[in-house]
């Protein structure tokens, strides 16, 4: 039995290579998701009643708008802070390795750990309050933990890399000769930034905004830990309903969250140039 393995049939190879993952994903991810979503239209009876009830559901509306608002604040905050960092990352090659490590170290640290860290920092007797009262700047400790602000601060911190990296990637793809051309044609640095760098980095900005916003919509651990039980987000509400074995309601909310995320991704993909920002360069 001799077989020339160097001439194995090429057509089947890609299928064989991805088969284990595909089977795994189908069995343990796709099926449960579909089963879950089915419950939103089949429990208690086959109907769209679960969805029809949402527009009058005060808890849902409040949670949904709250989640949306938090995501918006976090997206704007990360964008404002990420852009200069991304610019430094690309334009200051000497510092790039250090900046990258500072971005990636927290990125690789568990969200749970980082959320705990923020609890310690922002607590009533946490580092921030202790330091400010010790310095005489505060008479009584501030209430930061268990407020929307706490959620926004912690989520901004956790999501920053998702904004920095796509923007840095877009900035890195700008041909340096364009910046020289702009300068040579009479544009001082700030005009070059406004007229060349900023517009050409917009695909990266859109990608970062989309990533951060969609991730923020589904955030669970951080708001649950630092936002407190009163500042509820959509994913917290879902978890709560699951705890109460209210499967149909949880499934309906999940479907709404999924649809919202997919819709946002769809809209962003249609913006010119943004689709390319996501596309990987596979040679």
């Amino acid at each position: 039995m001799t077989r020339d393995w160097s001439r194995a049939p090429p057509a089947m190879m890609p299928l064989l290579l991805v088969a284990p993952l595909v089977v795994f994903m189908l069995a343990f991810y796709a099926l449960p998701v579909v089963a879950m979503l089915m419950r939103s239209v089949s429990d208690p009876v086959w109907s769209v009643a679960n969805y029809a009830a949402l527009p009058e559901d005060v808890v849902f509306l409040k949670t949904f708008s709250n989640t949306f608002y938090t995501s918006l604040i976090v997206t704007v905050a990360t964008l404002l802070m990420a852009y200069p960092v991304a610019l430094a990352l690309v334009r200051a090659p000497r510092w790039a390795p250090l900046i990258l490590v500072l971005i990636l170290l927290p990125f690789w640290t568990s969200v749970l750990v980082r959320s705990y860290a923020w609890m310690v920092l922002m607590g009533r007797h946490g580092l921030i309050n202790e330091a400010l009262t010790a310095a005489g700047l505060l008479e009584r400790p501030l209430r930061i933990l268990n407020t929307p602000l706490a959620t926004q601060i912690a989520m901004t911190h956790i999501l920053l890399p998702y904004m920095i990296l796509p923007i840095a990637n877009a900035l890195r793809q700008i041909d340096p000769s364009l910046l020289r051309a702009s300068s040579g044609l009479g544009a001082p640095p700030w005009r070059t930034f406004m007229q060349v760098t900023l517009p050409l980095s917009m695909p990266g900005v859109a990608a970062g905004v989309l990533l951060v916003f969609v991730l923020a919509l589904g955030f669970y651990i951080t708001p649950a830990m630092v936002g407190g039980p009163r500042e509820i987000t959509l994913s917290m509400l879902i978890a709560q309903q699951v705890d109460h074995l209210n499967w149909a309601y949880a499934a309906t909310l999940s479907a709404v969250l999924l649809a919202t995320s997919l819709a946002l991704i769809g809209i962003c993909y249609r913006l010119p140039g943004v689709g390319n920002a996501f596309r990987m360069n596979v040679r």
């Binding site: 041909d175 000769s177 364009l178 020289r180 051309a181 702009s182 300068s183 040579g184 044609l185 009479g186 544009a187 001082p188 060349v196 050409l200």
Partner: peptide, 15 residues
């Protein structure tokens, strides 16, 4: 940007 020199780049560098 103050030298007032025209320049054509190898890559053209069109925006």
């Amino acid at each position: 940007y103050r030298r007032n020199i025209g320049m054509v780049f190898q890559s053209y560098a069109l925006f």
